[in-house]
Design a binder for these strands. Sequence first.
DNA 1: CCGTAAATGTCGTCG
DNA 2: CGACGACGTTTACGG
Lengths: 223, 223
Amino acid sequence: MRLVIARCSVDYAGRLTAHLPLAPRLILVKADGSVSVHADDRAYKPLNWMSPPCTLKEGAENGVAVWTVVNKAGEKLIITMDEILHDSSHELGVDPGLVKDGVEAHLQELLADRMETLGEGWSLIRREYPTAIGPVDILGRDADGTTIAVEIKRRGEIDGVEQLTRYLELLNRDPHLAPVKGVFAAQEIKPQARVLATDRGIHCAVLDYNALRGIDDDKLRLF
Amino acid sequence: MRLVIARCSVDYAGRLTAHLPLAPRLILVKADGSVSVHADDRAYKPLNWMSPPCTLKEGAENGVAVWTVVNKAGEKLIITMDEILHDSSHELGVDPGLVKDGVEAHLQELLADRMETLGEGWSLIRREYPTAIGPVDILGRDADGTTIAVEIKRRGEIDGVEQLTRYLELLNRDPHLAPVKGVFAAQEIKPQARVLATDRGIHCAVLDYNALRGIDDDKLRLF
DNA sequence: CCGTAAATGTCGTCG
DNA sequence: CGACGACGTTTACGG
């Protein structure tokens, strides 16, 4: 990892064109060849960047350093450094990576284990039920034996309802499964998504992650 | 801007919980108080971060530095630094900011100015035509006087077709406008989006940004 | 390599 | 402040 603080101007030409006027900034060059330019605010997003794979060429023009970063698509990032204020390099090695908990995959596991939180007598057929347009999060049955397709989101928005609608359309073409009812399950469901879902006869279920995990923990303690 | 290279472990508890095992990483502390943790790969996304506004408390435990970053929502980022390999601070000042060109808003302006690129005799009613579920990018008329709703994207994918479909459904309920035909316009249209659009009777139009801009420039030169 | 779905998405804008 | 859509979205995962 190379850290450069420099008074620089930056030009990007690719999916759009963008220009950064001359000012002091941080430039990061990482081991994978990627380059990013940071201002002194905002944690997440660089002002400009080039994702790997890409190649950096260090040149000079009229005595000022000019870096050109290009990728395979022909996108270009040009950094012109009028004054270099700091320049250091550091060996970091490969990162062991992030361990996460509480994302959609985890919600899916928990809910599959506890279908009865959706309704009494409900049961699981399978998780990630494959269809031609992608896997349905959970396929199950209600107490009457009616097939249920569940779409799970952390936050339920319109996109998720559309996604479930497409699955339902396809599943209902299968005489072995039809009729299939839809359930839109999320920790939080946005009003517009709820309206759209209800309008389409899709049931909405708000999930309590901690409660689900609690139930799961109880279950684990029993065995 | 403070740059720290340290062998550290990181814990985040907020919208999810996440953990980073002990390894050398870059930690950025910016003037707005935000903190991010970077590995030696990927230009864009930090391994962990806390967006502003947030507060950083530097503490120590058993002789190792422990930083705790919290925000108003109560999300927490805890960085435990076993060994500090580099630590430097730099005054950068406020960034003058980015100048962009070529995004959807610009495409919309250009196309509104040149409705005839969609079809001979086509005309504009208005841009950002308001509906209960959001503004339609462009509402216009074809040569026969039939109402046309245009959805503009840089890249045309399935969700754009869904969006236009919802608008069309709503617009067609208005007897002053109905029947309303749909046009899905983008610089690039993905095959699946095209299939879905066609299946729904929505016309697809591929936009040439440079050509549109060229036409517009010609127009500007005339006045 | 393409296509789809997830994301601690983030970021603007508008009500 | 919440809701919504754009983003150079990026990133991960399948076929």
